[in-house]
């Protein structure tokens, strides 16, 4: 079976600095993969390349076997890759419902947007989604009035509304309360049943909640890959991560 995402010998350099350095990566359809790595490891650039925001200097990115190099961001999005940004990016002047409406519409061309009302199926999906992300009572609120956590959820909802095959999620729990973090984890695990998902995260507690396979990036390449236990006990990982075992890093300590 063709992997859903395959990255071969990928290098991205900005003015001579290699943000990604001969990186190779593979993931099968249906996987929930967590990518961790210290600051500056190239995690966000990694997502930028997959979504077409940055073009590879060298190497290829294959999505379902297709090379993504010659596609623009919107084409890649329509091919089935959805991206959630680190800070919630929703349209603040539009209501929750309107935000989702834009995402749920299958035809994204100018004339479809002008002349084609949402189909019954799209409207049904919209309503299910509003309930899933728990924003039904606020459906007609401008997104600007939502709390940080609610914006995160709305953006995840918009992502799912696009019905992508591959979801890229960048630090979904940054700035959330413990409860919200846990709920977000459950949401992602539930989504993983029908989508392939890449999550970038720092919060090790959260990683342990959702992770099956973890990939560690360091200085633009894959350092190691495996189950959370394998990764945590890998001496190279321990060395690059704070120079200390992951268990004892301050962010993971329970009160």
């Amino acid at each position: 079976m063709t992997p859903i995402l395959e990255i071969e010998d990928l290098t991205v350099s900005f003015d001579g600095f290699n943000a990604l350095n001969h990186l190779s990566f593979q993931m099968q359809a249906g996987e929930l993969r967590v990518i961790i790595g210290p600051n500056g490891a190239g995690k966000t650039t990694f997502l930028d390349v997959i979504t077409g925001k940055v073009k590879p200097t060298q190497g290829r990115v294959l999505f379902k076997g297709r090379n993504l190099r010659r596609y623009s961001e919107d084409q890649i999005a329509r091919m089935g890759i959805g991206r959630k940004f680190q800070t919630p990016r929703v349209y603040l002047n539009l209501t929750v419902r309107e935000n989702l409406e834009l995402a749920v519409a299958r035809h994204k061309g100018v004339f479809a947007t002008l002349f084609q009302p949402l189909s019954r199926e799209e409207r049904d999906r919209l309503h299910t989604l509003i309930d899933t992300i728990g924003l039904r009572p606020k459906a007609n609120f401008p997104a600007g009035l939502l709390s940080h956590g609610e914006k995160q959820w709305l953006e995840i909802g918009m992502l799912v509304a696009q019905s992508p095959d591959l979801l890229l999620v960048d630090e979904p729990v940054a700035g959330l309360t413990d409860e919200e973090t846990h709920l977000t984890g459950e949401l992602l695990v539930a989504l993983a049943e029908s989508h392939s998902i890449i999550v970038i995260e720092h919060d090790m507690e959260f990683v342990r909640q959702i992770a099956r396979t973890v990939t560690v990036l360091h200085e633009g390449s894959v350092l190691c890959e495996g189950s959370i236990e394998t990764v945590q006990n890998d001496p190279r990982v321990i060395e690059v991560y704070l120079g200390a075992p992951l268990e004892e890093s301050p962010s993971t300590q329970q009160p």
Binding site: T51, D74, Q75, A77, R89, Y91, L102, K108, G109, T113
Partner: peptide, 28 residues
């Protein structure tokens, strides 16, 4: 008044996000 108008506002407020939602802002 419709989805087209919302998309114009979306382009005004966050054009990059519009691209990642699968819309090509240029034609709009």
């Amino acid at each position: 008044m419709g989805r087209f108008g919302r998309l114009l506002v979306a382009i005004r407020d966050d054009e990059a996000r519009v691209r990642f939602s699968g819309y090509n802002p240029t034609s709009y």
